[in-house]
């Protein structure tokens, strides 16, 4: 167990290094640069040369990368080209918002998916079952940005029910409602269907018949024998689900002007703000890596057949 943990923890920095390399290469290979101005006069050539020298952009790309990694190891994320402030500070402001949005959405997705999936498995063709089908279809087929536009137009502008700009202090439920729900919807739809099919499959298992043959009530069979087994596949998708939430957060934060890491990432890409691109990408990679690790550990705890030690 501890061996495994150590190995996984050691693998994480290597993964991050690979992510850093790829991101760095892609960011610099993308045409355009931080000094491009579309709306104003272009910068004088000499100013651009000076700025490049100041930010170290005059070095060959591979040297820039080494410098970046060297700074990163010393936990120096650099300075934002666009904002002129330390990247660590900017991220520090956005992270709590994004983390709250992501966790809230994941919890909301699970809080709906688990009961709804179980009930629709137990009562097929009931109202709950039809709701599951609808939710799964809507959640997984309609892209986030369409939902954003629709929610903002309808609930925000037409009905004027909910505010749709910004995030507030993290306690403003009405303001957080739309972005949280929209971000949760795809995971919710997917997870509900997964819970349903997983429960259905376990219900057909031989050991459930054994449990019934013991004389257990249906409720005890469900609680003691079905649910734990049914959650194993659900747990395994929580890693990838986190990755999807990450991608969703780019869109949702941008549409709702939420000052989080997702919007920051989009802004930094548009501005070719290399240090911020690198920092946000690495942060997301770290989040996904940690989520996968947590899922694996929980998986071992839930299913004794998974020998984490090997």
């Amino acid at each position: 167990m501890s061996h495994y943990l150590v190995r996984r923890l050691l693998a994480l920095p290597l993964t991050l290094l690979a992510v850093a390399l790829i991101t760095f290469a892609l960011a610099h290979a993308t045409p355009g640069g931080p000094w491009d101005r579309f709306d104003e006069k272009p910068l004088p050539l000499q100013a651009e040369i000076n700025l490049n020298r100041y930010y170290g952009l005059d070095l060959p790309v591979h040297e820039q990368f080494l410098v970046y990694i060297g700074n990163l190891v010393r936990l120096d994320l650099g300075t934002s080209i666009q904002k002129g402030r330390p990247v660590a500070d900017i991220i520090g402001e956005g992270l709590p918002v994004t983390a709250q949005l992501g966790l809230q959405s994941l919890l909301l997705a699970l809080a709906v998916a688990i009961p709804l999936g179980v009930v629709s498995a137990l009562r097929r063709n009931s109202l709950a079952d039809h709701a599951t089908t609808l939710l799964a279809t809507v959640g997984t087929t309609i892209p986030n940005f369409v939902l954003c536009v629709f929610f903002i137009l309808y609930f925000g502008m037409t009905l004027r029910l909910l505010p749709f700009v910004g995030w507030g202090d993290g306690l403003d439920v009405r303001r957080m409602l739309m972005p949280t729900v929209i971000l949760a919807l795809p995971a919710m739809g997917f997870l509900t269907r997964l819970v349903r099919s997983s429960v259905l499959e376990v219900l057909r298992a031989d050991f459930v018949r054994t449990a019934r043959a013991k004389g257990l009530r249906e409720r005890s069979v469900l609680r003691g024998h079905v649910l734990k087994n049914a959650f194993v596949p659900v747990l395994t998708v929580l890693g990838p689900a986190t990755a999807n939430l990450v991608v969703g957060s780019f869109i949702v934060e941008t549409f709702f002007s939420i000052p989080g890491v997702g919007r920051l990432f989009i802004q930094s890409v548009n501005a070719r703000d290399y240090p911020v691109i690198m920092a946000t990408t690495l942060l997301y990679a770290l989040a996904i890596g940690v989520a996968n690790l947590a899922v694996d550990l929980a998986y071992g705890a839930l299913d004794p057949r998974v020998k984490v030690a090997q």
Binding site: F207, T210, A213, G215, L216, R217, H225, V232, L302
Partner: peptide, 28 residues
């Protein structure tokens, strides 16, 4: 239910799948 497992018990064909994989033997 009061009879099942109590007065009348059953042994199934496949011992590989008839026990719950996530519960200990003693619990079952």
């Amino acid at each position: 239910r009061a009879i099942r497992g109590n007065n009348m018990a059953m042994i199934f064909q496949d011992p590989m799948t008839s026990l719950n994989p996530v519960l200990t033997i003693s619990r079952q």
